[in-house]
């Protein structure tokens, strides 16, 4: 990472720490903020957070690896999370999944070469009455069909 990038990231993390506070209880909001802006939490960012909150880097790493929505490896600009839980599964998740994989040319757990989309499964999104459902970043889409899912993905930047 370039020095300039490091400096701007440090500054950004400092601002998040100022916003949420230096207590350990601010850890999740701070990490969520970094994740939102950078689509992952780099090793440098994790150590910066640890330094500013006066905790050990491994504790930050421990928390990052616990939560599904926090990542320490770079994700694409858009993260698509298709619900894999039972009712979505019953109403056509598999067909949607296959269509998305074909269209993007990647498997679940992978990121497109242009870094546009990372594809993941999620557990129950709370849209069981309207499955299949998926999250695209923080927006939820329901009643998916293969066609509808592809349409949504095509609009992504």
């Amino acid at each position: 990472m370039l020095v300039m990038e490091k400096n701007s990231l440090s500054e950004e993390i400092s601002k998040l720490v100022d916003l949420y506070g230096k207590d350990r209880s601010s850890l999740l909001p701070i990490l969520q903020g970094i994740e939102k802006n950078h689509k992952y939490i780099s090793d440098f960012a994790q150590q910066e957070v640890a330094r500013l909150l006066d905790i050990h880097p491994v504790e930050v790493y421990s928390v990052v690896t616990f939560y599904s929505f926090l990542t320490h490896k770079p994700m694409g600009r858009n993260v698509v999370r298709l619900c894999q839980t039972i009712t979505c599964d019953m109403f056509g998740k598999e067909a949607v999944a296959k269509a998305i994989e074909r269209e993007l040319g990647i498997k679940f757990g992978e990121t497109t070469k242009d870094k546009k989309v990372t594809l993941e499964y999620a557990n129950c999104l709370g849209m069981c009455d309207q499955g299949p459902a998926m999250l695209v970043n923080d927006q939820v889409y329901s009643h998916l069909t293969p066609e509808k899912a592809i349409e949504i993905l095509e609009k992504l930047k």
Partner: peptide, 25 residues
């Protein structure tokens, strides 16, 4: 490592059945 010695090298990482004890990264 964390409480007794406050060195903080080891922690649980990952979740569920993937959980194991690890170091930073």
């Amino acid at each position: 490592c964390i409480d007794l010695q406050e060195v903080g090298v080891l922690e649980s990482i990952n979740r569920g059945h993937e959980t194991r004890i690890g170091t930073f990264l």
